[in-house]
Computed example of a mutant assay.
Amino acid sequence: MARNLIAQVDLSAIRHNYQLARAQAPQARAVAIIKADAYGHGAIQVARSLESEADAFGVAAIEEALELRDAGITRPVLLLEGFFETEELPLIQQHKLWTALHSIEQLEKLEAYLERHPDSRGLHVWLKIDSGMHRLGIEPALAAGALQRLQALPAVEKLVVMSHFACADEPQRPHTERQLQQIDKAVAGHSVDLSLCNSAGVMHWPQAHQQWLRPGIMLYGASPFTEPQTVASRLRPGMTLTTEIIAVRDVQAGESVGYGASWVAEKPTRIGTLAVGYADGYSRHAPSGTPVWLNGRRTALAGRVSMDMSTIDLSLHPEAKPGDQVELWGANVTVNEVADWCGTIPYTLLSGLTRRVKRRYTDDQPF
């Protein structure tokens, strides 16, 4: 039926990956990061499959959180970027959301709001400290004062300190150790829960695990590391992206395929045309040679990815015909490998899939 381009999402694999994250720090709790529509996997479906065991969910902003609440998700939801306008605070209270707080300006807005609403209670605030990422967060020198001000607010029921690692996926660099030192100084003398670890931190930095983890990309079976890694080898792919051959043709030696005539046949070659292109989220930066999986073995792109179609070399697949399924990434060709060929990271490929790609869900334990 229609264009056979499908992202098959394995919810049991995502649960396995969440459990693997938790197993790295059994004493800790974990916020399952499902921002950006669960990195393209479907936030509502992923949240439903994890709701019985996830400690909380993490999203970028309140719009994503409200979609979860509208879908009946009741677990705590953390707004990783906090609130953008004071008008969001009543919604945060109404829907029992947790909010990050990453600037003195946000703290001042919160204090002013609570002064106008002195009966407010039950807020969960995650104070973000900039320990070296230099993107969001309160400067470490201001952290003690911010903690004192938050602890003085009766409405704040729970307070967690969070930070974010810039180079946890590059273990050979000293940046993470320096960030840990900054955090230690910032919270010295304060008894407060900490949340420091993204996926790379969960997988490689046990000294940083603390009370709360924040696994993201690893939930979906992709590794944040460019090199083999022990925990990464135990991840299961959360998505298999497949399409089909829609045409087969023969080209002669010296003939080119695709825009820009960038691929030229060195010998007579069969070419298969696939129903997938950059308008679906398959990267235009995928060069000739990028692997795909067809009929039990590999072949590769031949020619540029165009808006709606791509072409592959069928030299080693004399049996290939229109209608044959092709895996673009999944268990046989990992999304990490495709990202490497494209000069990017798996995050961009997964989260960049567009609405033209049909999502289908499987689960060995239906929720």
Rank of each mutant, 00 (worst) to 15 (best):
Y39S: 11
T311I: 00
D70M: 07
R121H: 12
Q8T: 14
L97P: 04
V326T: 04
A65S: 09
W212E: 14
G303H: 03
L91T: 10
A60M: 06
K128I: 12
Q207M: 13
T99H: 01
S351Y: 00
A144F: 00
R15F: 06
V248D: 06
E88Y: 05
P318I: 07
S288T: 14
I104R: 03
T273L: 05
H102A: 15
H134N: 14
E64M: 01
R249L: 09
H16T: 09
E64W: 02
A54M: 08
T354G: 10
Q27M: 12
L350S: 11
Y259V: 14
E319I: 01
D169C: 12
D280S: 08
L301K: 02
V125E: 05
L127W: 00
G189H: 03
N17S: 12
P154T: 07
L97G: 09
S199I: 09
A300T: 07
A144V: 02
G303C: 11
A320G: 10
T99N: 05
Q181C: 14
D184G: 12
E327L: 06
D364H: 08
G201T: 06
Q252V: 03
L150E: 06
Y361F: 14
W341D: 14
L241D: 07
D169S: 15
N198A: 15
G330S: 10
L235R: 01
Q325A: 15
E85G: 05
V156G: 13
E53Y: 01
Q211L: 07
P268W: 01
Q8E: 15
I312E: 08
H41Y: 02
L196I: 11
H41P: 07
L150M: 07
P215L: 10
S256R: 05
P287Q: 02
